[in-house]
């Protein structure tokens, strides 16, 4: 029997989503280097960035990461198109907030905001560091590319600080609903377990979004 399209797409979204959640933990823990005093932070951060670029294992993981982001987005789009078709006519009055959260009803919109963030974020860092486009990046004292300086100067622009911080709100919302739903989509149905997973998702989302969200401010104030 053919694989159920509805289930298959959801499974891809959940699977890739979980992977992205793991990635965020790694990403955040490294970024907290930025909270250290400048003298230690610059060196540490730059050598960490160099490792990321040059380690073969991490490099291959990063390709999976790109692929998963693309898959996550494409399948979300496919599902959204299908779902729109399944509900072509909307209600004149719909008080959905009385039976569900705003987040759960707007994952697509929130996801689009995050996608926008990712594009800007990649343009700010990835394009410059990896593709070498834009302004030339200097080397630091040890000879690593001074990615710290890139971050430092970016977050001394108040507009970027606000952009980076504000967009951590949709990220948090997306993670909270996405993470706990991913468990369900992947077939985890133990009732007590699901209650725990909901709490874990909330804690995770709060830590990630606030964790990332405070960095621009700290750097700005440095």
């Amino acid at each position: 029997m053919a694989v159920n399209k509805l289930f298959f797409r959801k499974t891809i979204i959940a699977g890739t989503g979980l992977f992205l959640c793991l990635f965020l933990i790694v990403h955040l823990s490294a970024n907290w280097i930025l909270l250290l005093p400048e003298e230690t932070a610059r060196e540490l951060y730059n050598s960490y960035a160099t490792t990321l670029r040059e380690n073969l294992f991490i490099k291959s993981i990063s390709y999976i990461l790109y692929a998963f982001i693309v898959l996550h987005v494409i399948y979300a789009l496919l599902i959204t198109i299908h779902n729109r078709k399944a509900k072509p006519q909307k209600y004149v009055v719909n008080h959905f907030l009385q039976n569900s959260t705003w987040t759960s009803q707007n994952m697509g919109l929130i996801g689009t905001m995050i996608l926008l963030f990712i594009v800007v974020h990649l343009a700010n860092f990835w394009v410059r560091v990896k593709l070498g486009m834009g302004e030339i990046i200097e080397l630091d004292a040890i000879g690593n590319l001074d990615v710290y300086e890139v971050t430092f100067s970016l977050f001394h622009n108040i507009y970027y600080v606000i952009f980076y911080t504000i967009l951590m709100i949709p990220l948090g919302l997306h993670l909270n609903h996405g993470l706990k739903s991913a468990f369900k989509t992947l077939g985890f149905y133990h009732k007590k377990g699901l209650r725990i997973s909901a709490k874990v998702s909330l804690i995770y989302a709060v830590i990630i979004s606030i964790g990332f969200g405070v960095i621009p401010f700290f750097v700005y104030l440095k």
Partner: peptide
């Protein structure tokens, strides 16, 4: 078979909004 028929009928996929159980 039942879920396949559900797909054929044109129903959408579940987003776990939880509205249904309410």
């Amino acid at each position: 078979e039942m879920t396949y028929q559900m797909e054929l009928e044109g129903f959408g996929s579940c987003s776990f909004t939880g509205a249904c159980e309410v």
